[in-house]
Design a protein around this nucleic acid. Structure first.
Lengths: 178, 178, 178, 178
DNA sequence: AATGAATGAGGTTTCATTCAT
DNA sequence: AATGAATGAAACCTCATTCAT
């Protein structure tokens, strides 16, 4: 059993049963060890929770945004969506995001994570829209406004399961991109 | 001390400190009474939590949507936004919404509430857009897509504090409504 | 069960089994209650230990030193010894003194108590010796030196069970007081 | 790391933080090794504590009492005091004595040690007083009584830090030894 | 000679709950 | 309508110990 195993099991519990059910007994049960064993790897519950954030911060930092802007607008957006789905729908990351969504109004650390994810989508969207606009392929709506609405909708779809992101993307492209 | 006092204090704790910190001691402390006193009003913690949901369900049901569609598009939307701000920014309701946001991926009851609030905005938005479109005041974008994006953005602004809803509305009206 | 009951049981455990054996389970066992019950009366173990010191500080402050200096030297000393035996051999106080003796080199609070008890005997002894000396009943040894040695010996006898205090007193009086 | 290193660190912890803080983790921390390593040197905590007593019993047995009774009374006493200071103020032995002082009312082994140290001083003092008395240099006070008071005072000074032993000795010699 | 990893027992504390008053 | 007192269960944490390496 490694620190990472524990972290993985912990976020899974939080995602499935809620932050309030993240107890060391529950965690030990999920890991198939006794709860005292967890104390070999962490000095206490708090350090364990802290290291969840540290672990995923590192994870997210290592994710590039490999979008080739030389392709046509539709391809660019679909590649981006594909990337976001990878980012958000990876099982472990999704569990961590569930944690920060539960806690984002409670602790600043969670708020920061949730916020930066939203900003990531928004920023990347805006870059793509600017690019498309420069190519004269977009209708006359401010890219700033559009990327705000776009990113909120994508975020809701990916994180809250509010609708199908692909269907939305198609509809969006049909409406706004020539 | 009434049931309502307890409910009010309870959602405040959840909103400020998180659902996991909603304990009867904490609650009694906030109310300035002893823990045991709460059992005079509720049979137990579960019933208390249940009644939080019941209480606010009633609250939300009693909120009408008094928008006069005979006014011009801008007025209609601004009246609607004003209404939503009333709905979401009332201190107690905001606290309750914080509760359901924390729990929406954990229990169905919370998911239902969060979902129906989002749908409320979306439906009302769609109705307004259809109306505007019928009056020929709107650019050629599907009202369904637009209301999806609009409602997600308004919801994020009102619930997650993601941006200023009024500034967004102005920008939205300028871009999409003649 | 009152706070005082708990304190009494606690010092008894410390005196009989050592400070390291003062656990809440052990304490609850001695009191015939469950350990959670102790938390109704104290916020935690630390506060309980603190209140032991507070309790006995009050106790000791209320002990007068009713020695009638108009009596003859032997009577004065024997009355004093009688008083000290009352002070030190009361079951509860003896248990508390055992606590402070165990801890006097560890925490300042204990050192203060042990020290002031020693000084109490020494001061009272010195006062008596001065009185006797003024009456011309004493051999030419400095009362300061004599009271130092006397008080250390009485303290050892009463607190550490080092010898019989009465036998010592008789011997002391025979040697130093006419 | 040797058994002696461990013993030395152990008594230091007891002296500084109290017997209840002598845990294997704490000890390992002080030694800069892991907890499990201690089990290479001792079969368990109990054996380690036992060997503390054994170690210091040997130490004390090897301390002679090299006082040359042919010298004058003052010199004899001052040599003895010098010896006692060596015995009691050695850092390690002082730590061990702190241990037995903490535990002397709890376990017999500790009581035996503390008692024999007191008796050592008392016996040596009595021998010196008898010698002095035989030489006609002492005032007419029973050497038995005087050595009891003397030894208690010296013991308090050396072990409990109650006063300066040298100042006391000078004062004692001035008062009782011609 | 030392350690990484685990564990059962037992420690302190908090939880929701009960019940007589 | 509220509380003082207690409690079983379960939380977090520390303890001494074991054992393969």
């Amino acid at each position: 059993m490694t620190r990472e195993d524990i972290i993985t099991a912990a976020v899974e519990i939080v995602a499935d049963e809620g932050y309030d059910r993240l107890t060391l007994s529950r965690l030990a049960g999920a890991l198939g060890v006794r709860k005292a064993s967890i104390y070999y790897h962490f000095t206490g519950k708090q350090e364990m929770v802290d290291s969840i954030y540290a672990h995923f911060r590192d994870q997210f930092l290592n994710l590039g945004f490999a979008v080739d802007f030389s392709k046509d607008a539709r391809t660019v957006f679909m590649t981006a969506m594909s990337h976001w789905k990878t980012v958000f729908q990876d099982k472990q990351r999704a569990a961590f995001i569930s944690l920060v969504e539960q806690r984002k109004n409670i602790d600043d650390r969670s708020w920061d994570v949730a916020n930066s994810l939203r900003l990531m989508i928004r920023g990347q969207c805006e870059a793509m829209l600017e690019h498309v606009m420069a190519a004269g392929q977009m209708r006359g709506v401010s890219s700033s406004l559009l990327s705000l609405m776009f990113s909120n909708t994508v975020y809701s779809a990916l994180v809250d399961g509010q609708g199908d992101p692909d269907a939305f993307l198609v509809s969006f492209l049909d409406s706004f991109i020539k």
